[in-house]
């Protein structure tokens, strides 16, 4: 422990468009979950893809004494796993094959026996509540089930830095909680850093240790969820009149009322 992911002066863009300009965040401690929230097109996916080395980026993302932006792809893959927003269509593989492939393809999985790999994959599927689907074809799953398979592929690799792009967007309430609990377990047991893009602010309030509110102008707010997500900040960032209230359990809840009028 004591390790952290420190992002400073990060700049990311596409050929004709700078999306993230000089973004710095406080250190994200190991064993914690950071929720990345913000309106559509704010740059959340762009941020995660840059950290995963999928987009060229300037600046620094220091972890364990090194800059992960400067690592060779093979070294970075050992440390970082990125889960994209969607699993592609038309893949003729079963669920267990999908998860085993995620492990097999890495250097760690190459030496392990087939049985060990299979056991690890099965265990992660059980943990996410989709163990019974392991022999199903991916193409025949529901949207939410596919999202869980996609998450299983990421978690089974046990990355030190786990980057999840909207892992709960297609899930029912039980699976949303299940996914966040699984991520929490993973970061707690492995001392990993998780950055999770969420659109459900209440999920962020409930599960995240740190919240980053990203808007097109940059980081709008960052900190403990209760501190960062105030009604004034939310109304401003989303353009929707927002209230933060206490639930009967004493937890803060965000409620959106209406679009901010002219």
């Amino acid at each position: 422990m004591g390790k952290a992911l420190e992002i400073s002066r990060l700049c990311v863009g596409y050929p004709r468009r700078q999306v993230i300009d000089d973004l710095s965040l406080p250190a994200l401690a190991c064993g914690t979950i950071t929720a990345v929230v913000g309106p559509n097109a704010a740059g959340k996916t762009t941020l995660l893809r840059a950290l995963a080395g999928l987009l060229p980026a300037g600046g620094e993302a220091r972890y364990d004494g090194g800059n992960i932006l400067k690592l060779k792809p093979a070294q970075r893959a050992r440390l970082v796993t990125y889960m994209p927003q969607a699993l592609p269509q038309g893949v003729a593989l079963t669920v267990i094959e999908a998860v085993m492939t995620a492990l097999r393809v890495s250097s760690a999985g190459r030496d392990a026996s087939g049985r060990t790999i299979q056991a690890c994959a099965g265990a992660v599927l059980d943990r996410l509540g989709i163990g019974h689907l392991e022999m199903s074809a991916i193409d025949e799953l529901s949207g939410g089930q596919r999202q869980l398979v996609s998450l299983a592929q990421a978690i089974v690799r046990r990355p030190a830095i786990l980057l999840l792009d909207e892992p709960t967007s297609a899930l029912d309430p039980a699976h949303q909680i299940g996914v966040m609990a699984a991520v929490k377990d993973h970061v707690a047991s492995d001392g990993a850093v998780a950055m999770v893009v969420l659109h459900d602010l209440n999920l962020a309030l409930r599960w995240a240790d740190t919240v980053v509110l990203l808007t097109e102008g940059g980081v709008r707010a960052v900190g403990r969820a209760e501190d960062a997500l105030t009604s004034a900040v939310l109304s401003d960032a989303y353009g929707v009149v927002a209230r933060v209230e206490q639930s009967s359990l004493g937890r803060p809840y965000v409620l959106f009322d209406r679009i901010v009028g002219p």
């Binding site: 893809r49 999928l54 893959a77 796993t81 990125y82 699993l87 995620a102 393809v105 890495s106 592929q153």
Partner: peptide, 13 residues
């Protein structure tokens, strides 16, 4: 692994 899309495959190393 490439069947799961280029981003995911690259992220798998």
């Amino acid at each position: 692994a490439l069947r799961f899309g280029e981003d995911r495959a690259r992220s798998f190393g």
